[in-house]
Design a protein around this nucleic acid. Sequence first.
RNA 1: GCUGGCGUGGCGGAAUGGUAGACGCGCCUGAUUCAAAAUCAGGUAUCGAAAGAUGUGCGGGUUCGACUCCCGCCGCCAGUACCA
Length: 890
Amino acid sequence: MSDRRKPYPFDVFESQWQTRWDEQKTFRTPNPGDSDFDATKPKFFVLDMFPYPSGAGLHVGHPEGYTATDIIGRYKRMNGFNVLHPMGWDAFGLPAEQYAIKTGQHPRITTEQNIDNFRRQLKSLGFAYDWDREVNTTDPGYVKWTQWIFIQLYNSYFCEDENKAKPVSELEAKGWTRDQIDAVRLAFVSEAPVNWSPDLGTVLANEEIEEWKAKGHTVERRPLRQWMLRITKYAQRLIDDLDPLDWPESIKLLQKNWIGKSTGAEVAFTIASAAGGASTNNSEQITDNCHEVTVFTTRPDTLFGATYMVLAPEHPLVSTIASPGKAEEIDAYQKACANKSDLERGDMNKNKSGLFTGAYATNPVNGEEIPVWIADYVMMGYGTGAIMAVPAHDERDFEFAKKFELPIIQVVQPKGDEDWQGFIGHGIAVNSGFLDGLPTKEAKSKIISWLVENGKGTAKTNFKLRDWLFSRQRYWGEPFPVLWEDGKHHTAPESDLPILQPELEDFKPTGSPEGPLAKATDWIAYSETAKRETNTMPQWAGSCWYYLRYCDPNNTERFISKEAEDYWSRQPDSGADASQPNNSSPSTDNSSPQGIVDLYVGGTEHAVLHLLYARFWHKVLHDLGHLTTSEPFQRLVNQGLILGEDGQKMSKSTGNVVNPDDVVNEYGADSLRLYEMFMGPLEQVKPWQMKGVEGVSRFLARVWRVAFETNQEGEWAATEKLVDASDDTAKTLRKTVHETIKKVGEDIEKLSFNTAISQMMVCTNAFTNAEKIPVSMFVEFLRVLNPFAPHLSEEINARVASAFDSVSSEMLSEQAWPSYNEEYLIESEVEIVIQVNGKLRDKLIVAKDAAKEDVEALALASDKVKAHTDGLTVRKVIVVPGRLVNIVAN
RNA sequence: GCUGGCGUGGCGGAAUGGUAGACGCGCCUGAUUCAAAAUCAGGUAUCGAAAGAUGUGCGGGUUCGACUCCCGCCGCCAGUACCA
């Protein structure tokens, strides 16, 4: 096919326009302070999730979201907005480093090569990015500010009273000790057990484990010294502030579930040790053989129904309280649990395991003695690592109790006729002493009051969200700006930033918690007394704030200037008239979260982690007074996955991967762009069809042929169709063109690109069928087409402009979006549908403003209507003006 | 299991409660051509010769009128997994 003549010469002109846009910096976005900056213009910040530049290059999923944002960006630009539409690279990370380990080549080199390839591919698609704002997370100028933000986190704590982050210097002023302050920093060192992958040679965050396990790596639990970020302090705000964001409800829900808030109570039980007299330093210990264990429950109202207690196998008190005779058995069980993989635990879901410790706990509310078990369905990491089991009203406890024949006592009466056994809903308290007769809600608050009064418990809210494990034992990441001196950490002076990795010959993980940087002994030795931290930050770090850097990418003094931050944080003036931008000051109401990015488009795979981490950093920077907005992304749209032609997920192994480069070579960039938008709704999952690319390519060729046809020599020459004439000479065509201007504009705002393209096809068909077309009309259409097919529309416009004096030779990208005239859309006559009992029987053409009565009379006079109402009585006639008449008869 | 999303021609998909299937693909017919490709014109839900009937996963309901709203099922996809 490539040898064959192209349906229109995209192979010649697409690259020419790309070069021109590049050289003239057509899509440069002026920033506050620039000479050509116009502060009266409203801003529009439209963002793509920046890619990780892999060696495989772009796949067709990338241009889907990128084309969507490109169309919006170009459209907003034409409507007078100062559009920020940037691109960059999330370039730290494991694949580049793994490649370096294999080949010995520095990851910087492969990263650069991959970036060059990605940039070339993106430029070949004609995206209107401001390339002067390109951001690269591995760039020293960028790393500097990532490290600076870490220092801000390190130097902050979360003030519970004000519900926000504040500088630790305030605590110093209050006379807090160094250790006290270290215990509250937002960036802190923890010795907690972590997920260590011996073959990757690094620690992984909880949420990363599955991904790497799926790739065949092993992960085990190990206690190690690690940097953590105190994201849990923001749990409540991260939930609350989701509300006003324009995000898909499903993504909000995903985040809420991830944060996992649950409210209930903590209840203290006492356990008489079965070990008899065994003594430890445990703080929960009351006397030599009497210990207090706190459980968390969301249903304190069922406390009377607790028939046994379960401790997590790892619970520190297990060995203390257990019967000496059980020690061996318990030890074996604990070991078995520790080695259990997640998969095995999944299987355990139905078949629970557990072991009686021999000890008994006392239920504080009624003094009942209940057996204490250990079981791996209770996890150490959540709540207190201990539960009171109420088998009658909890599924898990119910199953466990049935299996081990433990007593089941009803304490909630369902409102309906449901079986109380295993009933987990709300009802009326029974067999519960002073709670009897109370509905669940009231019973809860009454028991909590009782617990508080008796010193046996307290109301408590728990979150599933854990603090963020922030260090990695790898080479290709940002080093921590931290120095160790006398066993204490402190930050490196800001003047040291950026702190870059030392050059290494050997990138292999050491297998030790210090990571590969530990091999650079010269680099580590910071001074006589100080040593550098050898951990690096995870890949998330750079992607947590890249959207901010785009606003002021070359600033060497700040991560983002005050002026730039202020301007790009302005409330967008939706529906702004291009000629009269709204100058009203941005909202000063800090209580309502409002994102700096107006529209963020990307895949669902980042629904939880990236978006949550970025929101967290943004809030910290907001609290510390560095940002005016409290949220990063106001509106979020997830583009749907593009499947292979076979309806399967694209993958190398199935060989159904489509390479954008091939599509561009064969059909041109405009065809690829248009096809990706024409496939279906942006957010929907949809299969690729090469025939579909041909279809849109044919459409673009039809647009081309409205203006040009091949002459005898086989060259493209102007058609006779386009004429210098008033729009009045082609009223039907004018109506179609104005309908198109209206619908395409509305559809772009709705991100309904497939229907916008369909309307442009209708319009093109009208042009094709017209004898003569006023050239001004055709050019208006080209402006509408421009955001979708920028190369083709610019090329046709330039050629037409050289043939007609009346046509401006200015680039379409610099021109305004055309306006439509409502008057031209009005029809004098409309087709009315005539229904009998809701079924279509006839159609009538009537005047647009025909009176109801007249339309009704005409409808009743119709022969077809008469045929269907014959022998029936007309009961009612419904007339919807300009639409239909429905005759009800029986 | 739970949560979310989706079920419309041969295919991708359109339809403020008001003509179901816009637009495109594919297919059929015709024009052009020595022929083909490309292009142009017309047709194309199903059954039926037609009149007409039937059709938006299934079953109910609301309504003059339901792809659209409500209730109950079925199927597919995605996410999640003992969070007390």
